[in-house]
């Protein structure tokens, strides 16, 4: 049997309480009401929440005391035999309840997907998409060019900032003394936070800030590019061979010279390769960002979609697919060439 430290027993119990409450809610509200009775459950009021909570806690205490709870199982604290089996059963019941809940919450409906009426509508839509309207080709092309340049600008402007941040968030370089280590942590926190916000959301923020248009889209992409590339850059720096650094340091070179002569030559090629790949990603994202007012081809797509002009939308989608494919191809070739 694994260690039965009081700490892990307590953690297992906390897990059991969450588990109990979760099971009470999904089993009653989704499985019982929605699936078996096909009725709406009562609105989740405070007293009802307390009832669920109490049932969950009671369940947790019961199972936990029996030494047959899912929490104990996860922490490896069950005894083989019926207790272990009971815990496993509880776990798979929760698993099934979760899948059923996801299905119900998503309102999955085969009828909506495949009924004659709906199928016909979809058929019309696909029909128009596949008969693109070429009269707007010029307009679409210039919007596409805007998108490509916008993402290029975002990548280029991000580059110098990312370069510096990449070094500042490389553990091996920054761990040397306390000041640099504080900087390292601050930069890490800032970039992690920034990266966790999707470019689409940045686009919404910037379109409020600087107004709808390509500038907002560029800023959104730039911010996200900085945060994601800085991480890739710093990982690259962390994986370099420390030998040349030691050798250059031993010649009496200054720290900046050590970085420039021993670190930079080891990372320029991977940096370039990441950056080109990022531009490729940015072109894709730029089409999406246009949907929320980031300018370029996405903007145009939204306009025609709003007007229900599906043949025009068809052309735009075709153009996006072609450009994304081309960018993908070119960036792969370039990255191969510079290896």
């Amino acid at each position: 049997m694994a260690s039965t430290s009081p700490r892990s027993v307590f953690q297992a119990f906390v897990l059991d309480v969450f588990f109990g409450v979760y099971l009470a809610i999904t089993l009653h509200r989704i499985i019982w009401h929605r699936v078996l009775l096909n009725s709406e459950p009562n609105e989740l009021t405070m007293p009802l929440a307390i009832v669920y909570g109490s049932i969950g806690v009671v369940l947790a205490i019961l199972l936990h005391a029996m030494k047959a709870s899912p929490g104990r199982k996860i922490f490896g604290l069950t005894i083989p035999g019926w207790r272990d089996a009971l815990a496993v059963h509880m776990l798979w019941i929760a698993g099934v309840a979760t899948v059923v809940t996801s299905w119900v919450v998503t309102k999955v409906s085969l009828i909506d997907l495949f009924s004659g009426d709906r199928l016909q509508r979809a058929g019309q839509l696909f029909g128009s998409l596949f008969t693109p309207e070429f009269s707007i080709a010029g307009q679409a092309a210039s919007a596409m060019v805007e998108t490509i340049y916008l993402s290029l600008m975002a990548t280029l402007l991000a580059l110098p900032i990312t370069f510096v941040l990449g070094f500042l968030s490389a553990r091996n370089l920054m761990k040397q003394n306390n000041t640099t280590f504080v900087v390292y942590n601050l930069v890490r926190i800032a970039t992690n936070f920034t990266r966790s916000i999707e470019p689409l959301i940045w686009a919404i923020i910037f379109s409020v800030w600087v107004g709808i248009g390509p500038f907002a889209g560029m800023l959104a992409l730039m911010v996200h590019t900085i945060a994601s590339l800085a991480k890739l850059y710093s990982e690259q720096i962390e994986n370099i061979d420390p030998g040349p650094m030691e050798a250059i340091e031993a010649t009496g070179a200054s720290p900046l010279q050590v970085v420039w002569f021993a670190v930079v030559p080891q990372i320029v090629i991977p940096f370039l390769s990441f950056t080109i790949y990022r531009w490729d990603i940015n072109v894709r994202m730029a089409t999406i960002i246009g949907l929320v007012g980031g300018g370029g081809i996405g903007d145009l797509l939204m306009q025609y979609q709003g007007l229900g002009r599906w043949n025009e939308v068809g052309l735009i989608v075709l153009l996006i697919a072609a450009v994304v494919w081309l960018m993908d191809y070119i960036s792969a070739k370039v990255r191969e060439a510079i290896q």
């Binding site: 061979d241 030998g243 040349p244 030691e246 050798a247 340091e249 031993a250 010649t251 009496g252 070179a253 200054s254 002569f261 021993a262 030559p265 080891q266 090629i269």
Partner: peptide
């Protein structure tokens, strides 16, 4: 310290050259 190090050369088992240069 750098002035002192300048008077002492060092070579290594793994040579520690900048390989791509």
């Amino acid at each position: 310290l750098r002035e002192y190090r300048r008077q002492i050369g060092m070579i290594f088992q793994q040579f520690n050259l900048i390989r791509r240069r």
